[in-house]
């Protein structure tokens, strides 16, 4: 469980994040939404330990994040970042196996191999297991990285997944498929924190939503509470209309045309 208290982050004079507090529980999907530069990625990097907060606290399972050994943390939470720099010609299955590196010394066990295979089939890349990573398309690379992250916490108890824009470069089918995977994890007791851009996807899949604007929290709560016309206007400077979703109980957000009559 992540406990975030009055989290702020500054570089130089610029405040990127100010006074953010929330709690992310296992068994919940928390979507972080907001305009470009609202501080979503900064928040995720603070949670993953890449950045040290200027003030405020990040607790993971009741302990300050900085005091947890990296190896212990690696078995409990996995992070999918936005940018991937791997240019070496590793086979996809070895990339996914890297998610298991925290668990074995020299040679992977049968369990590690099993998990790699299962992670690959989960993201639908079993057929490309032997392909060299750089030859994959952008979306396939993104899914391969997701498989690596899944393998890392596959059998963790109350594990956490931090996903920074996990849907970038994915087609419609795989966007929903990725969020389906996230929901499956939540059902198994995982906590998932995902930065999302599509408010309708956030409404459909998230248990809770945190809306940020210019580094400050605008709203935090269930999709119905957060995704109101006023909040969305404050977050994105855009007028929207909320329609009932034809199949689900969540709202459907439709931007008003700029020259609405």
């Amino acid at each position: 469980m992540f406990d975030i208290e009055n989290l702020s982050y500054q570089t130089g004079r610029k405040t990127l994040l100010q006074q953010v507090s929330f709690r992310a529980r296992p068994g919940e999907l928390l979507a972080v939404v907001g305009a470009n530069g609202a501080g979503k990625s900064t928040l995720l990097r603070l949670l993953s330990g890449d950045l040290t907060p200027t003030s405020g606290l990040v607790h993971f399972d009741g302990q300050p994040l900085g005091e947890l050994p990296a190896a212990t943390l690696a078995r409990r939470r996995a992070v999918l970042t936005q940018q991937h720099t791997l240019s070496l010609a590793f086979p996809v299955e070895e990339l996914v196996m890297m998610g298991r590196y925290p668990y074995f010394q020299n040679q992977p066990t049968a369990l590690d191999h099993w998990i790699v295979e299962a992670a690959l089939s989960t993201v639908g890349l079993s057929a490309l297991a032997r392909r060299s990573y750089p030859t994959l398309s952008g979306g396939e690379q993104q899914r391969a990285q997701l498989a690596r992250v899944l393998a890392q916490v596959w059998e963790a108890q109350e594990g956490f997944l931090l996903l920074d824009e996990p849907l970038t470069g994915l087609d419609l089918h795989h966007q929903h498929h990725t969020l389906d995977i996230a929901r499956d994890l939540v059902l198994r007791g995982f906590g998932v924190i995902a930065v999302l851009h599509d408010l309708n996807l956030a409404a459909q899949y998230a248990d809770r939503i945190l809306l940020l604007a210019q580094g400050q929290p605008v709203a935090y709560g269930s999709p119905d509470q957060v995704l109101t016309c006023e909040n969305i206007h404050r977050g994105f400077q855009i007028d929207v209309q909320l329609l009932p979703h034809p199949h689900l109980s969540c709202p459907l957000i439709v931007p008003c045309p700029r020259r609405a009559v």
Binding site: R45, A70, A74, A78, T81, H84, M98, Q152
Partner: peptide, 8 residues
């Protein structure tokens, strides 16, 4: 950072 997330 990815390596750090994996406990390295």
């Amino acid at each position: 950072s990815q390596a750090t997330h994996l406990g390295l």
